[in-house]
Nucleic acid binder design. Structure first.
Lengths: 223, 223
DNA sequence: TCAAGAAGATTGTCATACAATCTTTCAATA
DNA sequence: TATTGAAAGATTGTATGACAATCTTCTTGA
């Protein structure tokens, strides 16, 4: 075997599909925070068996995307502001480093892609499309994280962001948040493009602090 | 209800027990890295049904303590040095901050406990008991993490450390590693005790870098 | 109005089944 | 001899059905 490229077309299993579907549903706010997920209902809705569903739920529970209380079953976590803060703090520790490392190692092509995603966000910010704002922001960040050189950092960051996805989408709908977010992201991009690590880290830190403040505002507004 | 303390004696479920048992087994090196876990065997060994086992396995897979390849089933991950490095790097980002924050907020009683665990490690280091070295080191760190003020940081740190538990136990058996580890931990303790955040962070960073170097040595020795 | 208890719903767990897929064996072929 | 191919066996992915334990809701009696 001259190469050991993974040619395996990994088969989509019911479990994987279910996890992805539920994850998406949670992200999109399809379930009310705090609400219980009734297994039998989900089974019929998803068209799968209970064992398969429960396996998927255990996966999501391990990711902390759902809670599992014995004899009460699965439910959507109701995050306190304290927990959200804690998540943002950890996210800051990781993201700042990721941005810094990214600024030192990103390739020309990837930088091009990053630029593109920034333009896409700018476009989404000008319109009033909050879904597009979220997805383009996610693109922007996933490119940075994919180029920080540390797949574990990338993985953990993704997990953290997933847990606060609701707050992010809410705060992105806040009056003026998209505009200032755009400015912050531009600063990050410029610093990365010029290979200035210190500036990149600093811009990243500023962005997260503002995002956290916006999330707090959004949380207070919604309860 | 005057208090909302959680009085619930959370019932031990088969799933929880199984996850804990398997986690312990993995930590203790009971399974060879890379080896496959045959569901039917585990079922009889653990005395549980296959659906229950599979739920437990999904939890562990989400924690990255086992791999799950479709149609090949669960197996013990075989970490590359690159992955181990990546984990150590992320651990550094988090742990350094945790130690720093801990130095600013730990209580007298908790500091007492920390001191105790350090003494316990010293004792274990003098003997040639590698299991005791691991557990006492774990105590030391869990006290620090529990006092950093950020439960999410604590949780993620635990997950990361779990994934490299094998390397830690191997490197702790390395000639002289326990001795130098003791010195590093003492430095961390002293910095925390004196409330010197910068010194605490610096000591913590040094400790992790040395631990990583030791892990690399151990990995090269064992293959 | 409130408490006790009964009825119903839901979860935790198990046993069983079977098709799809992987692995191994072993013979046949180049 | 080395390689290919096919058959047999093992293992996983998924589903159905079942039932006790527990939680929730509703009813009834005080």
């Amino acid at each position: 075997m001259s190469q050991d490229i993974n040619l395996r077309v990994s088969p989509r299993t019911v479990q994987q599909e279910t996890v992805n579907t539920l994850r998406q549903a949670i992200f999109s706010g399809h379930f009310e925070p705090g609400s219980r997920l009734v297994e039998s209902q989900l089974c019929t809705q998803l068209g799968i068996s209970r064992p398969s569903l429960r396996e998927a739920l255990r996966s999501l529970a391990a990711e902390r995307l759902i809670d599992f209380v014995p004899n009460r079953g699965p439910s959507i976590p109701n995050l306190t502001w304290g927990e959200v803060t804690a998540i943002y703090e950890v996210r800051e520790m990781l993201e700042v480093n990721a941005v810094g490392q990214c600024s030192q190692r990103i390739s020309k092509e990837q930088l091009q892609k990053l630029k593109k995603s920034l333009v896409a966000f700018e476009e989404a910010a000008s319109r009033n499309d909050s879904l597009a704002r979220i997805t383009t922001t996610e693109d922007f960040y996933s490119i940075i994280l994919a180029n920080c050189g540390n797949p574990i950092l990338e993985e953990i960051h993704r997990g953290l962001v997933a847990r606060i996805s609701l707050f992010r989408s809410r705060s992105m709908s806040l009056e003026g948040r998209a505009i200032s977010s755009l400015a912050e992201m531009k600063a990050i991009y410029e610093a990365i493009a010029s290979g200035n690590e210190a500036a990149a880290k600093s811009a990243s830190r500023k962005h997260i602090l503002k995002a956290m403040a916006a999330a707090k505002k959004a949380m207070e507004a919604t309860g």
